[in-house]
Amino acid sequence: MALLTAAKVGHQFGGLCAVADFNLELHHGDLMAVIGPNGAGKTTVFNLITGVYRATEGSICFKGTELVGKNPNQIAALHIGRTFQNIRLFRDLSVLDNVRIAHHAQINYTPLEGLLHLGRYRREEQRIIDNSRLLLAIFKLEHLAGETAKNLPYGLQRRLEIARALAISPELLLLDEPAAGMNPNEIDQLMALIQWIRQEFKLTILLIEHQMKLVMGICERIKVLDFGVTLAEGPPKMIQNHPKVLEAYLGEIPDG
């Protein structure tokens, strides 16, 4: 059974059609990329899946649960994690708190127990701190646990964002341009990291990326969007030579 199924999803901003007739089927363990020129509706697709926007038509199913109409936090609690195109950390909070906050839905105590620091409070908080430290250690950020997030260098902020997304223990991870602003060396590291977390956390990953090196290097399937419409879908080899894709990226190729 497919993990995530999007069927005929469409979204309009006023009169502008951002995404139309979008179909997607992700199976457990897939690593898929969505590419396309700027403004093609890639991030809108992420926002539709995670509930930031409500799809105006179609349906999105995650493990048999309908996502359209749910709040972002309800969808996140179903274990769908994401990162953002422009980093959206909790800038004034510590690195550790950034990761701890993402555990919100997994912490089991009532407001009263929280107010009086009684009952399950201690056990749960300790569990979350241990888990957060583990995540930070995986991303080599442990020594910065008490640092304010905005003081971290750019590359580390990107890493922290992935760590935070992993804190909601996702089955499906959506990465929005993870390699933006990275140099070739850093991209190599990122590719290794993505493949490693995919195996370690048994993730299904859907990513948006402009860096062809990353897309062609690690993704098994690629979906190309332009003006909200799917141009092509298939393995990297096929996409590289697809005439419609070349046209969208390079312009119309004159005959002859």
Binding site: N71, A76, R88, H103
Partner: peptide, 21 residues
């Protein structure tokens, strides 16, 4: 508590905190 951290995350970035469950 987790609620207080939620309050702080709302101050920092409400949409991001919503997306972080």
């Amino acid at each position: 508590s987790k609620y207080g951290r939620g309050v702080l995350s709302i101050r920092e970035d409400e949409i991001a905190s919503d997306l972080m469950s």
